[in-house]
Design a protein around this nucleic acid. Structure first.
Lengths: 340, 340
DNA sequence: TTGAAAGCGCTACCAG
DNA sequence: CTGGTAGCGCTTTCAA
């Protein structure tokens, strides 16, 4: 069943059917009624390929997302999906296997499929990645969520996680915690920013040296962190913990709990559901993913309409305080004052 | 840059370029080399639409998934994505807003986009849904993951969650727990099976009446469960909990913990990362999603190759015991024996 | 082994 | 307001 059949059955030309289908051009009420009736009766569904081949638009957005089973990635995909679909776009999803395989073949797939734009959930900072983005941007506008890449036709939305990390360290040190341990897993742009913020914070506010440990696991860094922190307790001195992601913080808090070290405050990142599920609840830095998604889609729509758009927008992050954090800080504070 | 340009630059016809591109037909080594060189040099990427328009195949699979931000849904999407991509398929993802909106428009989108097959992550049991599936299956083979719908060109893979739920109830009652509370949120096929299994288990093994509460929340049922169970403690008598999903169980365990009711065992479903993150760790029924995905893809490949495939495959579920469950059961058991 | 040419289903321009 | 028709970029006969 194609447009010829419909035209035939409705007693009009394919041009008229096309006009009805696309609400383009003027069609008499009579013709429209007739055509619509035939379409409904026959259950005709037009072929998007043929349409796209003509219009050179696919109304499809490619999303490249590292391992979508990670809730940190699934959330923005859900959000983007909702927003894009509301604007008439479909989504071609590429869930990459790891965070650092070359993006080139993924971009090629998307270009081959004629997506109108590509959105990336995060990015790493490699030279290779940068090149791949620039390459892709020659074919199609590229939007980066929670990551930064510079180049023509590349647009970024991110969150000032660097300052946020720095502020958490400041908060810790002001209460009297000096040896803040930083745990992270993957080496994304966002990850680098947090790490930089942590280091900056330590440099500015702490008398101790930065103490950084990378925990990485095929499965989920949660397990690895649990083991790592278990091993560290008693071996390495630290009195507060900041992690690049909630799942790490939860592993750490679990290990601390086992060892009876409830005095050690921990702050995670991304404010995921995990931080609420944990016992005790976890404080976490919210990277405002929802707003990032909204901004990205807004920018995307502008760009597709040929309007100018800012190459980079940065939002503020926000520390969400939960569980024992406040009490821990107060206690430490009063200890410190008592000692003085 | 299209196939004509390449043909021109390589000094051959478009037919030859096409043959090289698709590794179809015989091409002389010389022509092939020449064409490949030009393609590489020019960075030519063929237009999939034009290709698909001819072949009537898109090598694209549509996945309809209720709210992909839910880790229970994101996981199979990640898994399917990996497997399908390895077989040369791209993924058109539709993340629906809720679990029970009509699938019809989503199917239409997919058919319009000419997907080679549609995969659904779960399904509900409504009459409407059934009809939508049958409708879609007239255009394209439909595969249901963790759900069951019958009809021509519809293939299901699922897990015997009903028996699993029944077995958990049996386990509880054998240890001496009679008043098993069942908590669930969404009304999916899978959900109905678990509920049926729970009821069957209560009927067979318990002297108490079934005690079922539905907790449903826009956001995450975790919060709602937390509140619900908080309210129930002291009001309603129950001595063990089974929930349709880990997140519910975690909410329940949290509420129990607050009330000092550490004697009440809880078992969740789906064996998600949440069950490990919880403190204490949670026992959970594994629905073997990974295997379900593998089976689905296998079936899909068979069907696309025109082979016969079973309309429904069912796997066994498996209870993963963690945390205090074993101890709780033993204690109860010995209490019971003591009383006798 | 190769190329000419007829489509695939739809759009959009142009003439009426 | 309508219809004829030339493409969109690629595949696939069919002859050479």
């Amino acid at each position: 069943m194609n447009i010829y059949d419909i035209a035939c059955l409705a007693g009009v030309s394919t041009a008229t059917v096309s006009r009805v289908l696309n609400h383009s051009g003027r069609v008499s009420e009579a013709s429209r009624k007739k055509v619509e009736e035939v379409i409904a009766r026959e259950g005709y569904i037009p072929n998007a390929f043929a349409h796209n081949l003509n219009t050179k638009k696919s109304r499809t957005i490619g999303i490249i997302c590292p391992v979508i089973s990670d809730p940190n990635h699934a959330y923005p995909v859900a959000e983007l999906s909702k927003l894009l679909r509301a604007n008439g776009f479909e989504i071609l999803l590429i869930s990459t296997v790891s965070n650092d395989d070359s993006k080139r073949p993924y971009f090629v797939s998307l270009i081959n499929r004629q997506v109108d734009a590509a959105i990336l959930i995060g990015c790493n900072c490699s030279r290779q990645e940068q090149e791949d983005f620039v390459y892709a941007a020659k074919h199609v506008p590229v939007f980066v969520l929670n990551g930064k890449v510079e180049g023509p036709n590349i647009y970024c939305t991110l969150c000032d996680e660097k300052s946020a990390a720095e502020q958490v360290v400041k908060k810790f040190t002001e209460a009297g915690y000096q040896r803040v341990l930083y745990l992270y897993d993957s080496e994304t742009y966002s990850g680098e920013m947090k790490l930089a913020g942590y280091k900056e914070g330590m440099r500015k506010y702490s008398q101790a040296e930065p103490l950084v440990v990378q925990v990485q696991d095929e499965l989920s860094s949660f397990y690895k962190t649990l083991d790592t922190v278990r091993d560290m307790i008693g071996q390495v001195e630290f009195d507060a913990i900041l992690t690049a992601d909630d799942s790490l913080a939860i592993g750490a808090v679990k290990a601390l709990g086992e060892a009876g070290r409830r005095d050690v405050p921990a702050v995670g990142f991304n404010n995921t559901i995990l931080s609420r599920c944990a016992t005790p609840e976890l404080s976490s830095v919210d990277n405002r993913m929802k707003q990032q998604c909204a901004l990205t889609v807004q920018t995307l729509l502008s760009v597709l309409q040929g309007e100018k758009a800012p190459a980079c927008v940065t939002l503020d992050a926000q520390l969400i305080e939960r569980g024992p954090l406040q009490k821990q800080l107060e206690r430490k504070q009063s200890e410190k004052n008592g000692v003085l």
